[in-house]
Each structure stands twice: as structure tokens, then as C-alpha cells.
Design a protein around this nucleic acid. Structure first.
Length: 403
RNA sequence: GUGGGAUUAGCUCAGUUGGUUAGAGCACUGGUUUGUGGUGCCGGGGGUCACGGGUUCGAGCCCCGCAUCCCACCCCA
């Protein structure tokens, strides 16, 4: 038997119901916020991700499905969605057109990681990206949209917030931190030594308690923001307060992708194990420029659909449509004919075998039909059909012509 | 990538110190004497015990390998 590749799952049956329910709910809400659907290719030039996500990130450094195609192009399966959307935005010259452009997308992402619960090699994200709005109100709207989607799906969460600063305050802070940590280099753990070289801010997040003690007096970015960043961060908190969105400040929250600046946020669930981030995003004002576009402010977030799936509260399934069965072999052809007619307007289930009434009622239950319709000898003779409303428990016979 | 655990029917799991034809519940399917369901009763199908080796007279059970999933690290959605 050939089975699917490691970390790559099929989505079917009950999982498909959950999956589509989420997509429909999220799509609906994104549209209410004025976002439009965008679809970008799964395969992109490798350079796109190296330049956007950043070569220092784990995603690009060791998790990409990268290969040389038959035309000798260096390509890879997208590990995240933002880079492709930004590329499309620039390619369509919307950066030069000006104005605001808001998109949402959903689809497969690929990362060559060791799978565990909530971490797959092919997984699905729902994401949104907003271009051209510098105002921090847009950051707040993003967070509110994500919160609305989670709420609509009945998913509980904790919202963590941080500011990563901008090109004014981040570089000097980073230098400051590197100096601080470098002095401790012989005392900190191996991972931290590596982090100093790749993504220094991550050391603050280290789980090693020795490291944590050493970093207690480390400079915090949140105390070193420039006035613009500080004002925006304060304003963001005010907007969220005014709209009853609860949050906690996590000064160690660092997005793993290099392109983020200023607002960074993460929605976390305590009910799905160690892979607890269910949505994450933030502002990325410099990314369009990095990818050769005209400087354009932007903000976005992405949600991990598989992680949300088991948290989604599914709406109660209601009885729907018709079930039609025959109690006599001679009636089967007629049943088939009626079903074809009924299917033009309603969901209709049909049993091809003649059975007694009890079994048809059982079948109608199993199909979760609202109406159980049966044709037996009596009905054949009189040209009628027996119909029972399984919810209201009302039954009657009507002429077949009126069915 | 590192360390640990698990793997028996479609699903959730039993399976004794290694010993005959490997079990249960649920699900599926059929019947239930006269046309009333979701919740009665009786029956039926379904397993290369993940896979590959080894030890043994004999392996679901012991040993080695491998795959997948799970947990932690790491990372992130």
C-alpha cells in the first residue's frame, strides 16, 4: 500500500466539514472588513523567500522544499503566504498605483519539519494582507478581524502583543542587546550562542532557566522604542481597550520572520499542546521595498487552519432535504425519477432497494433527511406518495403530481 | 535535526509466564412473522496483529531494524 508522505494529510469526511466551515466563516468576515480574495502560486522562485522571510530564519535556512526544476530554476514550495502576495502586489504595479489594497487568501504551505501534533509538512493557512495604510488603526482592525474569526468559530484564545520597533529604534536596540549577551557568551546555552548570530532577540525567549536569570537585566525593546513606535503602540492598546479586546504584553514575542516591524501579535491556545500559536502577524512596512517595490506600509496575519480545526465548535447539523424509498420493486423506477426531479431544488437521498417502512425510516434518519418519502403498493395504485416530516412527526399522502 | 513513548477490525481498546480457529464495544450490513425512525431483539461481513528480519518445536507477546503517529526540545501558523 502506498501511503501519504510524512507530515502530509488528507482532509476528508468530518475534517473536511470542519475545514470548509472555517474557510467559509473566515472568508465571510474578511469580506466584511473589505478584503478581496487573492490566489498566488504554490511554487515561487527561492530568492523571493530568501529576501523576504530572511536567510537567518529557520523557515528559509532549513525548512524549505527547495529544488531545481527542469528549466534549471531554483524554486521552492511556499513556506508561508505573505511573500507571494507582496510579490503579486508589486508585479501588478499596485505599489505605484497607490491607494489601499486589502487581500485574503487560504491554501497549502510547506515546511520540511519534524511533524508532531499541530505541526505538519503540508499545512493550511488563512491569511490577510493590507497594503497602503500606515495608520495603527489598521493594525487594530487586523487584530479585531482575527478575534472576530476566532469568536465566530467558538475558539478561545489569549492575545499576545509586542512592538518590534522600526528602522530607527530596532537596529540600535539590537546592537545594544548583542553587546549585553556577548559579554555572557561563555555562560549561556548553545542555542543562545547560535541565536546571537542569527536572531539575537530570540535569546530573551530561551527556555533555559540559567539563561533566563542572566537575561533578567537585559535591555528590553519595549523600553527603547522611538517616539513614533511608542505612540503607535500606546494608541494600539487604547483602541483594543476601547473595543474590549483583551491582550497581554509579551516583550519576548518575536516573529520568526525577518520582515516584521512595529506591531507584532500572536493568538495562542492552551488546549492544543505545545504548538500553541493559532494565529500570528504584524506590521511589515519595509517588505515591499525589500522586494523592489515602492515603499508601502503593510500589515497582515495568518492563521494555521489545522491547529484551529480541533478547536472549532461546529454548528448543530439540521435535518435537511428528502429521502425517497420504495416498498415494492416495481416502485424503484418511479422513485429514481422523482429523486431526479427533486434534486433540481433540494438535497435528496434515495435507496435503490425495496424495503419495509421501518427500514426506510431508519435510512432517512441515517441520511439526516427532513422528509421520509415512501411509495408502496397502496401509493402505486392510487398515484400518491407517503411523506413524513421527521422533525415535526407529521405524515400525509399527496398525489405524485404534486410532489 | 536530538531524546522518549506508541502501533492489534473502519474507530476506541482488551489479549494471562510465549501455546490450538486473536476478542469486546461502537460503526457497517441483513432480518425482526401485519406499513412507523432516531433508543428493542437476533444474525452477518470485516484482522498478513504497521512493515522487514531474528530467537524458538511454537511469536500479537521476546530481540534487532524500519516506517508512521504522539510527547518534549527546536521552530512556528
Amino acid at each position: 500500500m502506498i501511503s501519504s508522505l510524512r507530515g502530509m494529510n488528507d482532509i476528508l469526511e468530518e475534517n473536511y466539514e470542519r475545514f470548509t466551515h472555517f474557510i467559509n466563516t473566515a472568508t465571510n468576515i474578511a469580506q466584511k472588513y473589505g478584503f478581496h480574495f487573492i490566489e498566488t502560486p504554490l511554487l515561487e522562485e527561492t530568492a523571493l523567500f530568501k529576501r523576504s522571510v530572511g536567510e537567518s530564519s529557520d523557515i528559509v535556512g532549513k525548512e524549505m522544499y527547495q529544488f531545481i526544476d527542469k528549466g534549471e530554476n531554483d524554486v521552492c514550495l511556499r513556506p508561508e503566504g505573505t511573500a507571494g502576495v507582496v510579490r503579486a502586489f508589486i508585479q501588478k504595479k499596485l505599489d505605484k498605483a497607490g491607494g489601499t489594497h486589502r487581500y485574503f487568501y487560504h491554501g497549502s504551505m510547506f515546511r520540511y519539519e519534524r511533524p508532531q501534533k499541530g505541526r505538519l509538512r503540508q499545512f493550511h493557512q488563512f491569511g490577510v494582507e493590507s497594503f497602503g495604510v500606515e495608520s495603527v488603526y489598521e493594525d487594530a482592525a487586523m487584530i479585531m478581524m482575527a478575534a472576530d474569526i476566532l469568536l465566530a468559530c467558538g475558539i478561545g484564545y489569549r492575545l499576545q502583543l509586542n512592538s518590534l520597533g522600526d528602522s530607527n529604534c530596532m537596529p540600535p536596540y539590537k546592537e545594544n542587546l548583542v553587546n549585553f549577551v556577548t559579554k555572557l557568551e561563555d555562560k549561556i546555552c548553545e542555542d543562545c550562542v547560535r541565536r546571537v548570530a542569527t536572531n539575537p532577540i530570540r535569546v530573551l525567549d530561551c527556555k533555559n532557566s540559567t539563561c533566563q536569570d542572566l537575561y533578567a537585566t537585559a535591555p528590553k525593546l519595549i523600553n527603547n522604542l522611538c517616539s513614533t513606535c511608542q505612540d503607535d503602540f500606546d494608541k494600539l492598546k487604547k483602541i483594543l481597550d476601547a473595543n474590549s479586546i483583551a491582550y497581554e504584553i509579551n516583550t519576548n514575542l518575536v516573529r520568526g520572520l525577518d520582515y516584521y516591524s512595529k506591531t507584532a501579535f500572536e493568538f495562542v491556545s492552551d488546549d492544543i499542546g505545545s504548538q500553541s500559536a493559532i494565529a500570528g502577524g504584524g506590521r511589515y512596512d519595509r517588505l515591499v521595498e525589500f522586494l523592489d517595490g515602492r515603499p508601502t506600509p503593510a500589515v497582515g496575519f495568518a492563521m494555521g487552519i489545522e491547529r484551529l480545526m480541533e478547536l472549532i465548535q461546529m454548528p448543530e447539523v439540521k435535518r435537511e432535504g428528502y429521502y425517497i424509498g420504495a416498498m415494492d420493486d416495481e416502485a424503484v423506477d418511479l422513485v429514481m425519477n422523482l429523486a431526479h426531479k427533486k434534486r433540481q431544488t433540494d438535497k435528496t437521498t434515495i435507496d435503490y432497494k425495496a424495503k419495509n417502512l421501518k427500514n426506510h425510516l431508519k435510512g432517512a434518519d441515517k441520511a439526516n433527511a427532513r422528509f421520509c418519502c415512501v411509495i408502496g403498493t397502496d401509493e402505486l395504485e392510487n398515484g400518491t406518495i407517503w411523506i413524513k416530516d421527521l422533525e415535526e412527526k407529521i405524515e400525509n399522502k399527496i398525489p405524485i403530481m404534486e410532489f
